[in-house]
Amino acid sequence: MTGEASVAAGSTIDALGQFELHPVLGHLGEALRFSQSPLFMLIAVAIVLVFLYVGMRPAAVVPGRLQAAAEISYDFVHDLAVSTIGENGATFFPFVFAIFFFILAGNYLGLLPFSFTYTSHIAVTFGLAIMVFVISILASIRFQGVGFLKHFLPAGTPVWLAPLLVPIELISFLSRPVSLSIRLFANMVAGHVLLEVFAGFTIMLAGLGAFGHVLAIAPIAINIALTALELLVGVLQAYVFAILTCIYLREAVAH
């Protein structure tokens, strides 16, 4: 939702301009390929780390509000990781925690005006999904050896079905990072395009005079509702990404 991209010429709505990358810090940023996307990643990561640091600083036996919030976020992801992955869940807990809060902070930061949503870039979400994919393959090899390949032919299947089933299983396995990344990317893009379009409607209606000013309230109301929806979608997509990561890791560590 970058402000400059709201309305391009007054008659058309540039809904996609908000996703454009611009170098920050002038020539240095240009040379380092440092756009507002990594800047907001840094902000998101800093917010989460500061939240945990400041929240846990009292280290009180009876926690205050901020400490309780930090502990709840820890417990929430810890329970998710351990209950889904199993006994090895604790090993992967920091990874799942990082995934969940990296995405959640990115989704929520993007809802602030003039900010940038790095989770609306397929390159970022695909990078995250490929990372999960590679780590789950490495975990499979670590915990099951090359024997994990037998998952591509489910136990008890007749051998003559193998030429049919193995490719299907392989495709479904390889499509995991694709579906994982596109789900998050599409959700964030769709939400932000909708917000942009309705914000554009408001400005276009406001240009029509007094009658337009009254009508312009409608898209504002819709945008308020959409913002609420986006708050839900933001946490939901982070949760979905994290729980799918856990499910893939459970398959990797299960014997």
Partner: peptide, 10 residues
């Protein structure tokens, strides 16, 4: 910048 954000992201 698109590829740059992936590297920076990593």
């Amino acid at each position: 910048l698109l590829i740059g954000q992936v590297v920076w992201g990593a």
